[in-house]
């Protein structure tokens, strides 16, 4: 008796897990409220930091307030999927350390899928709202046009940007298969993302290469957003970003799965 499990199977299964998960989430009100407050606080403090910075320095590398705000909103929206769907990565370290991770290996489904599907985080939606608000506000002030094509472009490149962020967090989480106290890797990677909202043109030399191709934070907002902000002058990297995004996501997934295989499950 062999079963083939394809995309349709996984989609259906994910939907079912999601529905169940949401149902139980509703019954834990306190948790929901606390994490929502947490989310609002994070966004507020991020915004305050941004305002303080611009109060002292009106432009950064030729980018004015509203363009920077656009980048900021873009990065917030791009971060939503990683918050909502891939939040369980934060628990990976503890699972691996305690040996509990082994339970994900006994089911006839993809281990990565099974692990990630376990947690859906609603609070990320607050960030989405905040990001969209910022995006719309700066969109109006910059005076960008509104058309079907540009909205479609926006969506495609937002998804692209979030693929890079997911890839970064996957890779950071997967380090725990090799490194025992890797908690800090995720923490710092999560702080790296704060720099995604600044134009990548501030980097130069070898670090420009590193932040573009090794730790691709330049793709979390800067390159994909140029397609919208500067349509007459789109760099090649921006155009290639959807392909690169898929590639980075795939590589991070492979890295994660390699970790599962390398891990010797000695924790008990």
């Amino acid at each position: 008796m062999e079963h083939v499990r394809g995309l349709a199977f996984y989609t259906k299964l994910y939907r079912k897990i999601l529905v169940q998960d949401l149902k139980t989430k509703m019954s834990y009100r306190a948790d929901f409220i606390i994490s929502t407050i947490g989310m609002i606080m994070t966004n507020l403090s991020g915004f305050v930091t941004f305002l303080i910075l611009f109060r002292n320095f009106p432009t950064i590398n030729g980018w004015d307030y509203y363009h920077m705000l656009f980048l900021y909103g873009f990065s917030l929206v791009a971060l939503t999927p990683v918050q909502c769907f891939f939040d369980n990565n934060w628990n990976l370290r503890f699972m691996v350390y305690s040996g509990d991770f082994i339970k994900y290996c006994f089911r006839p489904v993809n281990v990565f899928f099974y692990f990630i599907s376990e947690v859906f985080d609603v609070k990320g939606l607050g960030q989405l709202a905040f990001g969209i608000g910022t995006l719309v506000y700066s969109w109006i002030h910059i005076g960008l046009p509104v058309s079907f094509m540009i909205i479609l472009k926006l969506i495609v490149f937002l998804i692209t940007a979030s693929l890079f962020m997911i890839a970064l967090m996957n890779a950071a989480a997967a380090t725990c298969f090799w490194i025992k106290n890797s908690g800090y890797v995720m923490v710092i990677m999560f702080r790296f993302k704060d720099f995604a909202k600044y134009p990548a043109s501030i980097f130069s030399g070898i670090f420009k290469v590193i932040f573009t191709f090794v730790i691709p934070i330049a793709f979390v907002a800067y390159y994909p957003s140029l397609v919208i902000l500067d349509p007459d002058n789109v760099p090649l990297l921006s155009l290639l970003s959807p392909v690169l995004g898929i590639l980075f996501f795939y590589l991070s997934y492979k890295f994660w799965m390699l970790g599962v295989r390398k891990y010797d499950f000695t924790g008990s």
């Binding site: 948790d31 929901f32 606390i34 994490s35 947490g38 989310m39 939040d87």
Partner: peptide, 12 residues
């Protein structure tokens, strides 16, 4: 001790 939303507390 009161909630399981560690992430929320910690991020705040």
């Amino acid at each position: 001790l009161y909630t399981e939303s560690t992430w929320g507390i910690n991020i705040v």
